[in-house]
Design a protein around this nucleic acid. Sequence first.
DNA 1: CCTTGACTTCAAGTAAACTTTATCTTTTAA
DNA 2: TTAAAAGATAAAGTTTACTTGAAGTCAAGG
Lengths: 127, 127
Amino acid sequence: MMTIREVTELTGIAAPTLRYYEKEGLLPHVKRNENGKRLYDEEDLSWIHFVTALRATGMPIAQIQKYVYLYKEGDSTISERKLMMLNHKKEIERSIRDLYFNLDKINYKLALYDVLESQIERTSIKI
Amino acid sequence: MMTIREVTELTGIAAPTLRYYEKEGLLPHVKRNENGKRLYDEEDLSWIHFVTALRATGMPIAQIQKYVYLYKEGDSTISERKLMMLNHKKEIERSIRDLYFNLDKINYKLALYDVLESQIERTSIKI
DNA sequence: CCTTGACTTCAAGTAAACTTTATCTTTTAA
DNA sequence: TTAAAAGATAAAGTTTACTTGAAGTCAAGG
């Protein structure tokens, strides 16, 4: 069992953020010691990593809340949770496609700069 | 020359957003008619598409402001602007890598759900 | 003993990027 | 020609996801 300090050191996530995630219901069953201090076990760490992956891929807090709510409901919600993950997978794939699409535009801009610079260079040589 | 309405229809960007971008200095040299109404030409449209690509790839407004400021300075800032684009290109590539990395985790989760469902199915057949 | 440091909670504050509202002027269609 | 629609400005409001501050508790070290 780890303290919140150890978890912040291990994950790089600030303690207030961990408390905020827990308060919002993104981290089910984080335990406390006899004085009310948080204690995290391996399963809590798994949840933290999972929530972090969802956040990093743009899933809003509210949707993760819903997912965790379904998780707490038990096995009857497995298909719905799987569907959420399938939809989110599609969202991520769309994000990747969009990034590639816009990256092309940036590369086009860079190519223009290359042309521009070579023109300037040629002009300079002429002078 | 197009009105703001035609631009919103063409680009899907809301008129208040176009005004906001202009006020923040992201759209240089948008003209006005004799009564102060905005008129957009092809070059303005290019800027709008470019700004949209930068925003869609996560460049903050403040950084685009800086880019446009350099653009207005003239040719002496070409290398700096090119550098900004090169750095942004790296940022986009990093974002894409991160998304792939986290997509793997989601796919792993989905694989777990597949196992779970097949287990449930087998159990049901036994009953 | 008592102070320091690591917790706790709750409420308020922040940042970024829009979006909405209020008020006013100008077109445009009936 | 007049009423509705479209456009302008400035300021305030919204949303999301944290972050910071205030005030209190508790264990450990000097």
